[in-house]
Structure formats: C-alpha cells, structure tokens
Computed example of a mutant assay.
Amino acid sequence: MSETIFISGIDTDAGKSYCTAWLACRMAERGQKVATQKFIQTGNTGRSEDIELHRRLCDTGPLPEDADLTTSPVIFSYPASAQLAARLDGREIDVDAIDRSRRLLESRYDVVLIEGAGGLMVPLTDDFLTIDYVVSRRLPLALVTNGVLGSINHTILSLEAIASRDIELRYVLYNTHFDRDAVIAEDTRGFIERYVRRHFPATEILDVPDMSF
C-alpha cells in the first residue's frame, strides 16, 4: 500500500521545497521508493522549479514522471497565489488533474509527498481552500515551520486549523535554515515542541538540518 503525505507550511517562505526534499531523501535512505509531487506550481511554464529542486537536492536525477508533468500537473506562469495565477492565465485550477497524477504516482511508489503551494488557507476557489483538499482526500499532513520572528503565531494558527478539522498531523518539520537569531530560534523551537507535545502527542517533530545535502 502506498502512503501519501501532504506537506504544507506556516507561510509561503517557510521552506517547504527544501523540507519536502529532505523528507524524501530520508525515506529513500530507509529503502522506500519515493516520489514528490508539486500540488500547484506558479511562476513557471512547462516545468516545475520546485520539482527540479527536489531532484537536485536528493541527487536522483529526473523521475520518469517528471517528463510528462505527472509530478507537476498544474502550472501557472505568474508568480502569485494559485487562485490569482489561474485567473491571470485565464484558466481554472484542475483539481481532477492533481488527483489523477497523485493516483498514478501512488500506483508506482511506496510514498508520495505532495508539496503544497503556500499555506493551508491558500484558496483554490472562493469556497475551496488548500486545507479542504487535504480534508476531502483524507491525507495525513506534515507542517513546515521555522524560527523566524512571528512564526509561533503562524504555527499555532495552522495547528488550530489542523486540529479543528481532525487532520492527522504526521510530522512537524522544523526548518533550521532560518535560525539566524539563536535566542529567538531556541525559544520558538521550544515553544512549538511543548505545544505539539500537549495537543498532538502522536506527531513526530523533526529538525531539518541546514545544508544537509
């Protein structure tokens, strides 16, 4: 049975692509056959820069499914939020295409990691958010956070949304790349861990090391 995990972040620049690649490499080292998929790519044409980053960081080279964009089935040219980028390109977000690609990857790989676009509340339409996709497909979640000033607020808001929808929080991925202020980072990391331990006792908290590749 294949396992699929959706990876979201506390905001747009939390480091989802880096953490997705790190988690994929970690699982591959354990002997699992892993594919990553980009949920929605913006700011590109005919390619996904995030998928390319995954392959480069894991040093795998392109997957066969990269060539026909199975791993990045929805791409918009303007570097904006998914809903806006779709509108500017005169297209709709094809959620069915994302599902078809996900199911194909699930039939070929042990693990599929879906890197989201922005945070959980990014809208796909006016009444369907990214978090609604996660809920409707019953996907477990990995949340990417970091030690940037203000990230405690963003993290707790994300965790509250996850809890209120009964989403399985598989991992909290703490991205150490942003630990520029040691005092703030230590306090933030400690607070997030204490909160997660209280409210999500089954969740694994993983520190994603900087420059680990």
Rank of each mutant, 00 (worst) to 15 (best):
L113D: 09
T130W: 08
Y171S: 00
P64L: 12
L63H: 14
S164G: 10
T188A: 08
A117R: 07
A185Y: 10
V148I: 13
G116H: 11
L139G: 00
L143M: 04
D127P: 07
D96E: 15
D96L: 13
A142E: 01
I167T: 04
P73S: 13
T188S: 15
S72D: 14
P140Q: 02
R56G: 12
Y174V: 05
D99Y: 13
I184S: 13
I152W: 03
G190V: 07
N146P: 06
E106H: 02
D68T: 15
V112D: 03
L173R: 10
T145L: 04
L104P: 02
Y174C: 03
R103E: 14
L124S: 12
A67G: 11
R103C: 08
S101E: 04
T71H: 09
I162W: 07
D68E: 15
I184P: 01
A142R: 03
F128K: 14
R87N: 11
P73R: 12
S101N: 07
A97M: 03
D96Y: 12
A97S: 15
N175W: 01
T155Y: 01
L169K: 05
L104N: 06
D110Q: 13
I98W: 09
R137G: 01
T176P: 09
E186K: 14
D66P: 02
T130R: 06
E92Y: 07
Y109M: 08
D68Y: 13
S81K: 09
I75P: 08
T130N: 10
D126H: 15
T188E: 01
A117N: 15
N175T: 03
V183K: 11
L104T: 13
F178M: 06
A163T: 02
R100T: 14
R137P: 00
A86E: 07
S77M: 12
I162A: 00
S136W: 06
L57H: 12
L104H: 14
V74S: 04
I114R: 01
I152Y: 01
A182F: 03
G190E: 05
V135N: 00
